[in-house]
Amino acid sequence: MLRRHHDMGGLDAGPVDPFGPGAEHDYAPWEKKVDAILRLVSDQKRQIMTVDELRRGIEELGPGVYDELSYYERWIASVTNILIEKGVIEIEELGRRMAEITDAWPAGGVAEAEPKTAGDLS
């Protein structure tokens, strides 16, 4: 019986710890921007993708990446893949633009993600 990794109801896991250091964080501007991009490309006016496709794309990241990425990292990974699949953006221009943005950033860029909060480990 195939149980997919995101379908976790009933599995063993540690305590929730709602008052611990990873229990909450103020959402960063880039995280809200991911949310806003998804809302716009899936809205009534554009209908470029659905939230169902977002979810499918997140699930298809696979168990390793799913657990490694933070919540909104999973979202932007999925949204970007789907926008490329649908021909809305091209891989080449995306890569170039990411390099330009990183080069122009005062503190540069890193390959790794931010430290994880509890929600990021879901």
């Binding site: 149980r3 997919r4 379908d7 109801g9 009933g10 979810r55 499918r56």
Partner: peptide, 12 residues
């Protein structure tokens, strides 16, 4: 049923 792919009915 346990199909692969996107399924909206929880396993449990």
């Amino acid at each position: 049923a346990y199909p692969p792919g996107h399924v909206r009915t929880p396993f449990f």
